[in-house]
Design a protein around this nucleic acid. Structure first.
Lengths: 241, 241
DNA sequence: CGCTAGATTGATAAAGGTCAATCATTGTGG
DNA sequence: CCACAATGATTGACCTTTATCAATCTAGCG
């Protein structure tokens, strides 16, 4: 807590070109970058369910997550909710279009984050091309993740979607060097959130997870933690179809 | 053709913060930017089906489309093909991860594009923060499009997916100031491509388009052109569910 | 003018959405 | 500290929709 670096903004992503350990995201910022960002940022800690902003409102800030999980979603005309992405520590959100936020964002857990005025960030990026390049890497990385997400929801079996969802959680846990991963994962979001993320009904999520438990592939110590008992079979499900 | 600007790289996107006409993408580059990029670029024209690069190969270039349509896809373990995105004039592709291309890209039509060595582009971006910022806007914009794509494939009815696909084509045609849009659209890709993009079987694409034709919402002068006879009903389909 | 890739249409079976009821868990107030 | 309320999760029955397999048709191209 007294260490400066523990309390400064962080970005994690797989770099554009540097060859790091296969598929492992790394901290993209130097100490200097983090200090510059910290100078602009306000650190906030908020309880779960806090809404950071709503879609189509004027965009004034960019956020960087230090701790906790955020969901970014849109409510569709049909009344359904589509979760575009779950955001984790090291992720950036609030990048706008035409000066307005595109999605609504809400805390899934208690969240600690850095809030930076968008104009100040823009100025800093223009003055520091190297820092800006790292942001470019980050957004590119989020684009890849979005494409992977699309592949998940294109799967035609609910089990395949859930397998890909769990692999996403696993990837994230490993990036955070979570010691218990990949055997044990935290699942902070509700079943309904997972359904909205995967384009399933909550019932289908329930049924599929139950079936995976019955088949001995997963177990749930409680609703927000999962043990992966048979990783090979889970991989097979994620890959097949 | 003799005009310099007609033969220089272009990027189209909805800017980060500038307030342009609602939802209209604009040319992001100044004349100077375009000249700088043109200095680094090789202009190529290739026939349809040309593969620009394959997934997981070392990334050496970035491409900017001047004319034509490109598909970016991955072949999944199941043997199915997932098209991540269709790319149009003004789009950039080839942004890598860990020094390797993520998807395979192939020309859907005859394509004219600019090919830029990735190192040269990186140097230019570091020297020109303003240009880099425009690339950041572009990638952010592509991230939005990817999220919209995910919403399309989350739709549970084939008709809804196809309606959203057509609205994507419409958006693109309008950005290119295509005079015939939105009443008449070019559909350069095959039915199988559309199926791979939307997560449907080719048969389902056929059946749904046939039904939309029978209902008087669409008509197909030929397989690669569509008339939108009832835009209101198409919007309703795209929105519902 | 024939060949071949692409597109369409038909029949069948599997999977998830929906509606409805029950169960569990978390949180609150007495 | 306990009881109850409210939200979230699960399970069941039924129905709609699309994937799949197979056959036929069309159009572009040599």
């Amino acid at each position: 807590m007294t260490s400066a670096s523990a309390n400064q903004p962080t970005i994690r992503a797989i770099p554009f070109d540097r060859v790091s350990a296969a598929g492992v995201a790394t901290q993209l910022l130097t100490e200097r970058h983090r200090q510059n960002l910290a100078g602009l940022a306000t650190q906030l800690t908020v309880p779960r369910r806090t809404v950071f902003y709503r879609e189509d409102t004027p965009a004034e800030w960019v956020f960087m997550i230090a701790n906790g999980v955020v969901k970014s979603y849109r409510d569709l005309p049909s009344g359904k909710r589509h979760i575009a992405v779950f955001l984790f520590p090291g992720d950036v959100f609030g990048l706008a279009e035409n000066g307005r936020f595109v999605n609504t964002t809400q805390a899934v857990t208690r969240v600690t984050l850095y809030r930076i005025p968008i104009d100040a960030l823009k100025d800093l990026l223009r003055r520091d091309p190297d820092l800006q390049f790292r942001f470019l890497c980050k957004v590119t990385h989020q684009l890849r993740e979005a494409q992977r997400h699309t592949i998940s929801v294109t799967r035609h079996t609910a089990a395949g979607k859930i397998a890909m969802f769990l692999k996403m959680l696993e990837r994230d846990a490993q990036w955070r060097n979570d010691a218990s991963a990949p055997r044990s994962l935290a699942v902070p979001m509700t079943r309904a959130d997972i359904a909205d993320y995967l384009g399933l009904s909550p019932e289908a999520v329930s049924r599929s997870t139950s079936r995976l438990v019955r088949r001995g592939i997963l177990s749930f110590p409680d609703r927000h933690h999962v043990h992966i008992l048979n990783p090979a079979e889970l991989d097979r499900l994620a890959a097949s179809m």
